[in-house]
Nucleic acid binder design. Sequence first.
DNA 1: AGAAAAACCTATTGAAATGATGGGTAATTT
DNA 2: AAATTACCCATCATTTCAATAGGTTTTTCT
Lengths: 135, 135
Amino acid sequence: MISTKGRYALRIMIDLASQNPETFIPLKDIAERQNISKKYLEIIIKDLVEGGLLISLSGKGGGYKLKRKPEEYTVGEIIELTEGSLAPVACLAEKAEECPRASGCITLPLWKEYGELVHNFFYGKKLTDLVENKE
Amino acid sequence: MISTKGRYALRIMIDLASQNPETFIPLKDIAERQNISKKYLEIIIKDLVEGGLLISLSGKGGGYKLKRKPEEYTVGEIIELTEGSLAPVACLAEKAEECPRASGCITLPLWKEYGELVHNFFYGKKLTDLVENKE
DNA sequence: AGAAAAACCTATTGAAATGATGGGTAATTT
DNA sequence: AAATTACCCATCATTTCAATAGGTTTTTCT
């Protein structure tokens, strides 16, 4: 299941893509619009900045804005960055150590096929696909 | 992510489908073949019996066997039964209470589409699709 | 009748993940 | 200097995950 982290990250990105993408938007505004605790969003938006999806600016007049054009983001990269991995089973996660059962594992092809399906679905969705729904 | 519960359940079902489907197989044998703690499998196989996928028989000569023919099981029902739900987000789980944001939720269509994709994938896979890989 | 083999039942546990909250510091603008 | 913002660090309560432990009942075989 996609946790609040990934879902809130997506809502942050949609929110920013819906505002003027040139100006810095304070997190306070996003939190109020989305009705989510600002404190909790701080943790999540940190990942988005460190992952290179957003630019931040401190001080008065500061906030966050998209680094790229809205249409250049996929839902996949947002979810993957904040959830840690899109892999359907632990043994297929990037950081996983080689499973000793892998060579004879009868279910591995299933998980691989599923993993590709999930990957293709989310990387095939652009952030703007969601924003446009709004109108 | 699919947890060990769902993954082990699938391996139990594959194991049983690979044995003579007429005879009762003791859990001890399955646990040894699959190299998984018998105690842990007890918990999982209980779900499979209660969910109507397996028949159990106590006492000497007892064990577990498939209730239906191997080709009549889908991977989806096995995973869904043991994982509790295939829903990608909490608000789409069967037991979930209506989300107050649902009507205006901009991401809901995405989760619904994804949920259907996942459902169709797993319900489109038969247990025998996996067993046949074995040979 | 008794032993053995099996399922079945209840409970507990340790570790990690989840979903936050709280308080304070640094940077920047007016 | 004041206000506003991001940034940093720690802590917390709850739930889930992945088991483990020990005992009871059911059934068959000798």
